[in-house]
Every structure is written in C-alpha cells, then in structure tokens.
Computed example of a mutant assay.
Amino acid sequence: MANNNLDVFIISDCTGKTAKNLMESTAGQFPDYELKMKTFTFVRSIEKIEEILMEAKEVNAIIAYTFVKTKMRNFLNETAEKYNLEYINMMEKPLNIVAKRLGKQPKQQFALKYQLDEAYFDRIEAMEFTLKFDDLNESKGIAEADIVLVGVSRTSKTPLSVHLSYLGYKTANVPLVPEVEVHPAVLENNNNKVVGLTIDPKLLNGIRIERLKKMGLGDDATYAAKERIEEEFEYADSIMKKIGCPIIDVTDKNIEETAIEVLSYFKD
C-alpha cells in the first residue's frame, strides 16, 4: 500500500451512513492523503463478516462498523484481531451509555428507525435486478424475471420496468429490433411472463425526433423515419403474435396506469 493511501472498510447491518459520515469527516483532516473507502451495507450474517474481513486483510484495511447485535460485534472484533486489523466499533459505546442511563437493554433489532422488513429488501433486490437487465436480450435475465417487457424502442419499457421493480417485481425488458434475433427464451415464454408494449406510430415518431434533438442529431435520421418505424412495428407485431403474449397500447397512458394493466395479467 502506498504511503499516501489508506483503505477503510465500512461495514454495517443497515445503510452504513453513520460510520461513513464519521470516516469522511476524519478523512477531511488529512487532505494530503487518500482514504479509500469501501462500504458494505445490510450485512446480516457471520459468514458475510468473515468474507469481508478476509478481503480487508489483503489490503490491511481499517475497519469502521456499526452493528446492533452483540454477537456480530463480538465476532468482528475477534476476527479482526486474528487478522491483525485495526477496527472501530461505532455502535457499542453509545448503546452502553444509553442502556446504563436508562437501566434497559437495547432491543438489538436491525434498523428499527427505518422499519426495514422483508418486503423492503425484496424491493431493493427487484430494483437492482431490473437495472442490471435493462434493454438486454439475454437468457439469465429472461429466466429469472417475474415480468419480461418487449417492444420497439421508446415505448416506455425502461421507466415501466423501474416502476414495476419498485413495486417488488423483477422486470427485464427486451428491445425488438429487426436486425437482432430475439432470444429463444422470449419466444418460449415460460410461465407466461412476457408482455408486449405498443404505441401510436405518429406519437412514436414525435418522441424519437425529440430524442434525436436532445442527442444533437438531425430529425431526418433513420431512427425517426416513418418507413423505419413501420418496419419495426411489423417486426414487433410478428414477434408478439408468435409469442402469443398480451399487448398493451401505452399511447396517452402514464407509467402507473400501464403498470396496473401489466399486473392485471399476473393476478391469480
């Protein structure tokens, strides 16, 4: 490790903001040096702590952590000492002082302030999944998704996918482009998870022209040409017909309205 660099691993059973803010304030006192911070959030298992500390050992990182559970704090302390790592327990002293003054023991429950529950973590997982498989024609995303959206470019696939993920649904979206062969998994449509999106061609033409302007390109590009849009619609219609999936017209619909319609196909 270079003399002017220092690795700091921030570990927390919640967001890690407390430890991160304190370490950033500390770093500000050493402007000529770089404190490289790596944050590990929502760490809830002994196994994960072990994995992180093994990584920390490779770079001799300082450990700054906040855990509400005594068992996890003790394990981290013992393991850090075993690896000769310096560590800062940012939760224990405040907990002990308050507990002593109140004459009560802390509940040792994760993130009571934020009321995080299983549904919250499911939603975060869905959102991460959706961003990872945005606009991809790839087997893993199609196989693991709860919902797969297909359609030509600019039919609101991405914003709709993000909204559905916020509702807790892992959503993949696949662009339908004449020059690109659709993945067989989309055509197979296992579990009937594919939903097609379409839009009024004239509206799409206007949307694409505006998109080109924002990109600094002329509105006469092939992307916005009426002939090209007609070609894409013919191709998309043929694919969606082959799949046999429901098709939603997103013209003049907001994302919330379209999401409700999408989810109506997945009700028991």
Rank of each mutant, 00 (worst) to 15 (best):
L204A: 10
E138H: 12
G218Y: 02
T15I: 06
Y120P: 01
L22S: 14
E179L: 03
D220V: 02
L22E: 11
G168V: 08
S45Y: 03
E55M: 13
K57W: 04
K170E: 05
E256W: 00
D117S: 08
M215R: 12
E261A: 11
L6Y: 13
L212D: 03
A185Q: 13
S238N: 13
V194G: 07
M91P: 00
R208I: 07
P94F: 00
V174I: 15
T130Y: 04
E261Y: 01
E55P: 01
V250R: 08
V177C: 03
A2G: 01
V195H: 03
I248S: 04
P175I: 06
K214F: 05
V186R: 02
L160P: 06
D117W: 07
Y169Q: 03
I62C: 09
E257A: 10
N84L: 07
M127H: 05
K140Y: 11
L204S: 10
A119T: 13
K57D: 09
T26A: 12
A224S: 14
V174A: 00
L204H: 06
T251Q: 04
S238A: 15
S139K: 14
M37N: 00
S139Q: 11
G151F: 03
L95M: 15
A56E: 06
S25G: 15
S153A: 10
E261Q: 13
